[in-house]
Nucleic acid binder design. Structure first.
Lengths: 236, 236
DNA sequence: TGCCGTGAAATTGCATGCAATCGGATCGGC
DNA sequence: GCCGATCCGATTGCATGCAATTTCACGGCA
């Protein structure tokens, strides 16, 4: 029974708020630089400040939130230079992913990859938020397939922050990934050609990052945004 | 005004305990798997459980502590497989470091590197804890010199966790770095030969990881260990 | 008008308190 | 003697309260 390993741990409120806030930031529902008062977050999720405070502290460790003592918490607001740094790291990490993957390619993984790109083409264009989420999803799946949990964690983080950077400095839709590029990549991977895959991945990421230019659009008030995320993370 | 810099942000107690605990774990003063009760930590640092709790939550995000809901916090206890995963990621990250560094080599950086290895040879063997700290220090400095703060953060994390892994599965002193290997590396770097440096770094890390074998030794009670760290992090 | 104290409101940092949950000891049944 | 149910102490999860700090508006003064 390889089904449920250790999955169903009792999640604490802190974990839920942490996860919900992360989603909200990564889906660009909370603009970079926006202030995140503890009171308001607690109120939005129906908890006390304590919970909000802990969640913010953890998000700060992840680099998604900036915590300034006695001043408050803010959605991370990376400079363009920091954005570039993040992309550099991402490229390095994703290179590891494809190399690892190509090295330990199996028919089963190959099949999984195939179905991945197929589904991607189908789900491609639904909602804006969905598109953003989907853009990173492929890369996350790839990382997950390496079986290296730390690598997955890091890739998750950089993919997240890259979409944040693109939200700030890219034009609209620049966070989207070209499906055909993914297709080429999968072809190289299933062929076990790690070097070629690494090259393709590099190009792919360059093409994503290359779209960085402008784009600015503020969101409405924070509370209404968080309300929708609070619903999703309702305790059963 | 007397040059009281405001650059020094006021550190919160949470941050201090967070940092102190991290040091304690990374210097192997707290053995992997050891339980970390909130009460005891708070007491050790002269704060309430609230602070200890927040610090533990943040350490969990960093992967240095495992947090089990309703059960408590434990010093991370990576399996041998997880240890290998961490080393894989570390090698990839440090490859980025040397490539970046070789690419943007300047006379000043070269000088810094030189003095780094020289000091290293001098300080090499003082105390056990110092040796452990020093082992990672060189790699951290390298990462810092890239100017990429995210890369630095990740390298910091993996170096930390690698020393933890070595504490568990390596023989004593296996966390130490060979100074002469560092010397060769610096030579390649200052020559701007990124590929060669990358190769050397790979070998270097393999030689460190290769020493993984056995080794087991529990530390005394937690409180006495934490006491020394509490002193260091006293608020001035 | 512009600048700089001054004070009040807002917000954070932290401690404490209480209910919920877990682990282990005890005890009874087989 | 071994195993499972039951209770109790220990510890966590979370909310609330209070002091400290920051922010911001106001008003005096040049």
């Amino acid at each position: 029974m390889p089904a449920t390993r250790k999955a169903l741990r009792p999640r604490t409120r802190t974990e839920k708020v942490h996860a919900a806030l992360r989603r909200a930031i990564l889906e660009q529902r909370l603009d970079p630089g926006v202030r995140l008062p503890e009171d308001m977050i607690g109120e939005s999720f129906g908890t006390s400040r304590t919970i909000a405070r802990e969640a913010l502290g953890r998000l700060a460790v992840e680099g998604l939130v900036e915590l300034i003592p006695n001043r408050g918490a803010f959605v991370a607001n990376p400079s363009l230079d920091e954005g570039r740094e993040i992309f550099v790291v991402r490229k390095g990490l994703e290179r590891m992913v494809v190399l690892q993957l190509a090295a330990r390619m199996t028919p089963e993984i190959a099949r999984t990859l195939q179905s991945l790109v197929e589904n991607e083409a189908i789900l491609a264009s639904r909602s804006e938020a969905e598109a953003i989420r989907l853009a990173g999803e492929f890369h996350l799946r790839l990382a997950a397939l390496t079986g290296n949990s730390l690598l997955l964690r890091y890739v998750t983080e950089v993919v997240s922050r890259c979409s944040l950077v693109l939200a700030m400095y890219g034009r609209p839709h620049s966070a989207d990934c070209a499906v055909n590029e993914h297709l080429l990549l999968v072809a190289a991977l299933t062929a076990g050609d790690g070097d070629r895959a690494a090259g393709l991945m590099d190009e792919h990421l360059d093409s994503v990052a290359g779209r960085a230019l402008i784009g600015q659009r503020p969101n409405g008030d924070i509370q209404s945004v968080l309300a929708s995320f609070a619903n999703r993370s309702d305790l059963a």
